[in-house]
Design a protein around this nucleic acid. Structure first.
Length: 924
RNA sequence: GGGUGGUUAGCUCAGUUGGUAGAGCGUCUCGUUUACACCGAGAAUGUCGGGGGUUCGAGUCCCUCACCACCCACCA
C-alpha cells in the first residue's frame, strides 16, 4: 500500500526531473519576494502581517538624465491645452522609502504618458552615492505607474517592494537586494565601486536587448543571472551596515545638500503647514491655482523654497508577533512553473471533460488559470512534507570544473575554494537520500584525485557542512588519506505548501503511486463538492496536478456550493467569534432539521445566511411527517401487506389522485437532483408532504376508512407514506429511518431501500382534474365562510345551482369529502340563488349558502366586489393583449391559446359574480 | 483600484429558452373538527434598488447610476 507522503514526494521528484524545452524543470528553484521578519529572521505568510497606518513622509527627488541630456517637459489640461512647457534635464520621482533608491533598477512611466515619451529608453542617474560612480538606470514603460499620481514616474526597486517586483519581472529589470536578514544595509561582497560598475554594464545591456540603443552602445551587453544580481552589493561603502532608518536619513540629507530635492515655496499646501497663502480666503480660485509649476522647479514667487516632503499616512506592514516593520525580501524558494502545465486544465473544462457548476464559477476558474503566476510551493515551517532536495557546497566554484588548465591547482586548494564560495549551492533531488548520494558521488567522480574519493555524508545544514568539510580537510592534510575526505550535503529545511499535497488528494488517497484496486476502481472520481472560496487553491491545483501526473481529469463534475454566513451576511470566522456551531444547532433543532435547512438553502448562490427560524420551520416539518405516520399507524395502514415498489391498484378517485401526485413529485425530485438543485428537491418534497399528503389526502382518507374502499385506502396510504420516507431519506435520514423501521414490516433498512423509478403512467389526468376542482370548491367555501364570520362549528346547508354534467358528477363522487371539509350539512340542487345567501363560483356551476338572518349584506357585497375587481383587472390585461395585433403576430401560438382560454374562464366567473352582486342589490 | 456576485413581501430567500411575481418564517382574525398547537382554517402585504434602452410584452436581455458583500491587489 502506498501512503500519501510517498505520493507527494514522488510527484515533486517527477516534476523536478520533467524538463521543458527551456531546460528548466516544471519544479524549479528561484528568487521570490516574501514578507521578511527582520527580528525573527524568517519569512512569514500574508496572514501573519498586520497592516498598520503610521505617519510617514513622501519625498520628491530629481533623477538627472545621463550625459546632461535635456527634453521639453509639457503638461496639458483635460482639453489638451498646454499649461506648462519647460526644458528639463531630470525626471522627478516620489518615494516614501528613500533608502531603497540604492537598489533601483529603473524608472517607470505609463506608456500613454506623453510628458515622458521623449526620454523613454534613455538612462538617468540615481542621485546618491559617490559622485563619480553614480549608477545609471533606464527609463522604461509599464502599466503600473498612474500618470495622475505624483509626478507619474515611479522608481523601480524590485527587491524591496511587491509592486516594483512585478514591474521588474515583466520588464527583465534586475532586483538588487540592499539588506541582510536583520534588515540592516548589506556589508558583504565587493566594494561599491566594483559592484556599481557591474550594475552599470547590466543597465546598458538591457537597453541594447530591448532595442532602445544600437548594440555598439555597450561594449559588453552584460546579462546577469539571479544569483549574480543577488551577489551584488550596491550599498555605498559609507552606508554599509547601517540600520535602514539611519540610511534613509543620510540619503535624504545627501540629496538635499546636493540640490536634487524638488523644491517648493514654503507656502505649498502639500507641506501640511499653515502658511500665509493657505490661510488666505478661499474665495478666489485663481489664487489657489495649481502650483505644479513650483513643484517641478519653475521660478517661484517671492517666497523662499523648501524641499517637498509631504506628510502622508502610510500603511506599513508589521509582524504580528515581532511588532517590527516587515521588509519585502528576495529569497530562494521553490516554484511550480504553472504556465507549463496549466493548458490541459483549461482545455478539460472548456471541452466539458470536467463540468463546473454553477457556470459562473467556471468563469472564475478560467480567469485565474489564464492569468496564472508561478506557484511558490516552499514554506518556512517545521511541519509539512519536507522538500526532497539535498544541497552540497558549490562544485562549479572557480577552477573546479574549469578545463582550461587549472588542474594544476592543489586539490586541497580546491576544497578550500568550496569552503569560501558563496554562490549557488549544488543540489540534487530524489525521493530518498541514497538516491541523491549516488548523484553527488557521480559529480565528484569527475573531479581529480583525491577529491573523487570523498564520501558523501548528510549533515544538518550549511554551517555544519562547512565545519565538517574544514575538519575533513585538516584530517587529510595530516594523514594524506583520501578516505578522510568527506563531501557533506544537507537537506532543504523548507516544507511544501499544504495545497501542493492537498492538490494530490484525488490520487494520493487511492493509494497511488501503487496501482491499487481502489485507484483502478474510483479514479477518475465522479463529483467534487466544495466551496467557491477554494476554487483557486484546491480545485484548479487538483486539475493541473492530476493532469500533469497521471494525464486524466480528477473528477467529472465540480459542484460549487455557497458558504454559510452569519445573520448579517459576514463570513463566519473563529477570530470574529460569529460562528454558529452546527452541533449546537443540532442539539436544539435536530440533525434532520439542520440538514434539511442547508439542503433547502443550497441554491446556487454564493452566500447562505443561516437563520434559526428557518431551521425551526423545517424541524416542524419533521414533526408533521411523524404525526402523519402516527395517524396512519393508528388506522392500521401498514398491517397485512409487505412493502412494495408498485402502488396498489385503486378505484377511489382520491387514491388514484394521490398516487399520481406521488409519481409527479418523484419525477420532480429526480430532475432536481440530476441538475444539482438540492433546494428544489427539498422544496418539492416539503410542498408534497405537507401541502398534498397532510393537508388533503389524510383528510380525504378519514371518511374512506369507514367505507367500502377502506382496504384500498389503507394500502394506498401505506405506499404513499413509504414513498415519502424513501424520497426524503437523503435529506432527513434519521427521522425517516426511524419511521421506516417502526411502521411496516421491512425487508431492509431504509438506507438500503431501492430508489423508486415508477413513471408518468401512474398519473391519472381525470383524477387530477377532478381533485383540483374539489379542493378548489372547498377552498372557496372556506374562504367565504371565514370572511363572512360564519362560526367554524356551524354546519350549513348549501344549494348547487346550474351545475353542468361534469361538475355534477365530480360533486356526486366526492360529496362526503366536500361536506366534511367545507363543513356543510348537505347540498341540494336548486334553480336559482335565493336572497340572503353567499355565493361561491366554481368551474361549471355555482354554490349558494343561504345564511338567513346571519348574512351581512354589505360585507358579502364587499367580498364579491373585491374578487370581481381583481378579476376584471386581470381580464382587462388579457383583453388588451389579445386586441394588440402585434401580440397576435409575434407571440407563440400556445401562448395565445392560453391567453384566450384564461380570458374565457375569467369572463365566465365574472358573469356569475356580477349575477350574485345584482341579487344582493335587490335584496339590499 | 481590479474581479465576482447581489439588491424581489416585515425577515430569510426561490423565480433556467422574456408571457404579467412565489415559499418559509413573522403579522392579523378565527378555531379543542377521529394525527399533529412544532397544529388547523382564513386574511393582509411587493413602484421586483434608481434611471434609460430593446420588445407586442422585461423581475428575466442590454446600458448606466447607487448601495451591499466576497476574492485579489493596495498606491510610488
Amino acid at each position: 500500500q502506498g501512503n500519501f507522503h510517498d505520493a507527494v514526494i514522488r510527484v515533486f521528484v517527477d516534476l523536478y526531473h520533467k524538463k521543458r524545452p527551456d531546460g528548466r524543470g516544471i519544479i524549479y528553484r528561484g528568487k521570490r519576494l516574501v514578507n521578511w521578519d527582520p527580528h525573527f529572521e524568517t519569512a512569514i505568510s500574508d496572514l501573519e502581517v498586520e497592516q498598520t497606518e503610521v505617519a510617514g513622509h513622501m519625498w520628491h527627488f530629481k533623477y538627472p538624465l545621463a550625459g546632461g541630456a535635456t527634453y521639453d517637459y509639457v503638461e496639458r489640461d483635460a482639453e489638451g491645452r498646454e499649461t506648462l512647457r519647460e526644458t528639463r534635464d531630470y525626471i522627478s520621482i516620489a518615494t516614501t522609502r528613500p533608502e531603497t533608491m540604492l537598489g533601483d533598477g529603473a524608472v517607470a512611466v505609463h506608456p500613454s504618458d506623453e510628458r515622458y515619451a521623449p526620454i523613454v529608453g534613455m538612462l538617468c542617474e540615481i542621485p546618491v552615492g559617490p559622485k563619480d560612480q553614480r549608477r545609471l538606470i533606464p527609463i522604461i514603460t509599464d502599466d503600473y505607474p498612474d500618470p495622475a499620481f505624483g509626478s507619474g514616474a515611479v522608481k523601480i526597486t524590485g527587491a524591496h517592494d511587491f509592486n516594483d517586483y512585478g514591474v521588474a519581472q515583466r520588464n527583465g529589470i534586475p532586483c538588487y537586494r540592499l539588506m541582510d536578514t536583520r534588515a540592516a544595509m548589506r556589508s558583504d561582497g565587493a566594494p561599491y565601486a566594483e559592484s556599481a560598475a557591474v550594475a552599470q554594464a547590466a543597465a546598458r545591456g538591457w537597453l541594447v536587448r530591448k532595442g532602445y540603443v544600437p548594440a555598439g552602445f555597450a561594449e559588453q551587453p552584460l546579462t546577469l543571472d539571479e544569483a549574480a544580481v543577488d551577489a551584488l552589493n550596491l550599498v555605498p561603502d559609507e552606508l554599509r551596515g547601517l540600520d535602514r532608518l539611519e540610511a534613509r536619513k543620510r540619503v535624504v540629507d545627501a540629496i538635499t545638500a546636493e540640490g536634487l530635492a524638488v523644491m517648493v515655496p514654503a507656502s505649498d499646501p502639500r507641506l501640511g503647514r499653515v502658511s500665509a497663502s493657505s490661510a488666505a480666503p478661499a474665495g478666489s480660485a485663481q489664487e489657489g491655482a495649481p502650483d505644479d509649476s513650483y513643484e517641478e522647479g519653475g521660478t517661484p514667487p517671492e517666497l523662499s523654497l523648501v524641499p517637498l516632503v509631504e506628510p502622508k499616512p502610510i500603511m506599513q506592514p508589521h509582524g504580528d508577533r515581532s511588532k517590527v516593520v516587515i521588509e519585502p525580501m528576495l529569497t530562494d524558494q521553490w516554484f511550480v512553473d504553472t504556465a507549463k502545465i496549466v493548458q490541459p486544465a483549461i482545455d478539460a473544462v472548456r471541452n466539458g471533460d470536467t463540468v463546473i457548476l454553477p457556470e459562473r464559477d467556471a468563469k472564475v476558474y478560467f480567469h485565474w488559470l489564464e492569468n496564472i503566476e508561478p506557484w511558490c510551493i516552499s514554506r518556512q515551517l517545521w511541519w509539512g512534507h519536507q522538500i526532497p532536495v539535498w544541497y552540497g557546497l558549490p562544485l562549479d566554484a572557480d577552477g573546479f570544473h574549469d578545463d582550461e588548465g587549472d588542474d594544476a591547482l592543489d586539490e586541497v586548494e580546491m576544497f578550500r575554494l568550496l569552503l569560501e564560495t558563496e554562490g549557488e549551492p549544488h543540489h540534487h533531488c530524489a525521493a530518498r537520500f541514497e538516491g541523491v548520494a549516488d548523484a553527488f558521488r557521480d559529480d565528484l567522480a569527475s573531479l581529480p584525485h583525491p577529491l573523487n574519493a570523498a564520501s558523501i555524508v548528510e549533515v544538518a545544514d550549511r554551517e555544519t557542512a562547512v565545519e565538517r568539510l574544514a575538519q575533513s580537510l585538516a584530517d587529510y592534510t595530516i594523514s594524506q588519506d583520501p578516505t578522510h575526505l568527506v563531501y557533506p550535503v544537507w537537506r532543504d529545511a523548507d516544507v511544501l505548501d499544504t495545497w501542493f499535497s492537498s492538490g494530490l488528494w484525488p490520487i494520493g488517497t487511492l493509494g497511488w503511486p501503487e496501482n491499487t484496486l481502489e485507484f483502478q476502481r474510483y479514479f477518475p472520481t465522479s463529483t467534487l463538492v466544495t466551496g467557491f472560496d477554494i476554487i483557486f487553491f484546491w480545485v484548479a491545483r487538483m486539475m493541473m496536478m492530476q493532469l500533469a501526473v497521471v494525464g486524466q481529469v480528477p473528477f467529472r463534475t465540480v459542484y460549487v456550493h455557497a458558504l454559510v454566513r452569519d445573520e448579517k451576511g459576514k463570513k463566519m470566522s473563529k477570530s470574529l467569534g460569529n460562528v454558529l456551531d452546527p452541533l449546537d444547532l443540532i442539539d436544539e433543532y435536530g440533525c434532520d432539521a439542520v440538514r434539511f435547512t442547508l439542503t433547502a438553502m443550497a441554491a446556487m448562490g454564493r452566500d447562505l445566511k443561516l437563520s434559526t427560524q428557518r431551521i425551526a420551520g423545517y424541524r416542524n416539518f419533521g414533526t408533521k411527517l411523524w404525526n402523519a405516520c402516527r395517524f396512519a399507524e393508528m388506522n392500521g395502514v401498514w398491517e397485512g401487506h409487505a412493502t412494495q415498489v408498485a402502488p396498489p391498484p385503486a378505484t377511489a378517485i382520491v387514491n388514484r389522485w394521490i398516487i399520481g401526485e406521488t409519481a409527479l413529485v418523484r419525477a420532480e425530485v429526480d430532475a432536481a437532483l440530476a441538475a444539482y438543485r438540492f433546494d428544489q428537491a427539498a422544496d418539492a418534497l416539503y410542498r408534497f408532504v405537507w401541502g398534498r399528503v397532510c393537508d388533503w389526502y389524510v383528510e380525504f382518507a378519514k371518511p374512506l376508512f369507514d367505507g367500502p374502499e377502506a382496504a384500498e385506502t389503507r394500502h394506498t396510504m401505506a405506499w404513499v407514506l413509504d414513498q415519502c420516507m424513501i424520497l426524503l431519506h437523503p435529506i432527513m435520514p434519521f427521522v425517516t429511518e426511524e419511521l421506516w423501521q417502526t411502521t411496516g414490516t421491512r425487508a431492509t433498512m431504509l438506507a438500503h431501500a431501492d430508489w423508486p423509478a415508477y413513471g408518468d403512467d401512474l398519473t391519472d389526468a381525470q383524477a387530477m382534474r377532478e381533485m383540483r376542482w374539489v379542493t378548489g370548491l372547498i377552498d372557496e367555501v372556506r374562504s367565504a365562510r371565514a370572511q363572512m364570520h360564519v362560526p367554524v362549528g356551524l354546519k350549513l346547508d348549501a344549494l348547487a345551482v346550474g351545475l353542468d354534467p361534469v361538475a355534477q358528477a365530480a360533486f356526486a363522487r366526492n360529496e362526503a369529502l366536500i361536506l366534511r371539509l367545507a363543513r356543510l350539512g348537505g347540498v341540494t340542487p336548486a334553480d336559482s340563488v335565493p336572497k340572503g345567501a353567499i355565493t361561491v363560483t366554481v368551474e361549471g356551476g355555482t354554490f349558494a349558502i343561504p345564511l338567513g338572518g346571519i348574512i351581512d349584506i354589505a360585507e358579502e357585497k364587499a367580498r364579491l366586489a373585491k374578487t370581481l375587481e381583481k378579476l376584471d383587472r386581470d381580464m382587462a390585461g388579457l383583453r388588451g393583449r389579445l386586441a394588440n395585433p402585434n401580440f397576435l403576430a409575434s407571440a407563440k401560438e400556445d401562448v395565445i391559446d392560453e391567453t384566450r382560454e384564461k380570458l374565457e374562464q375569467g369572463d365566465d366567473e365574472a358573469a356569475k359574480l356580477r349575477a350574485a352582486l345584482s341579487r344582493l342589490a335587490e335584496a339590499g
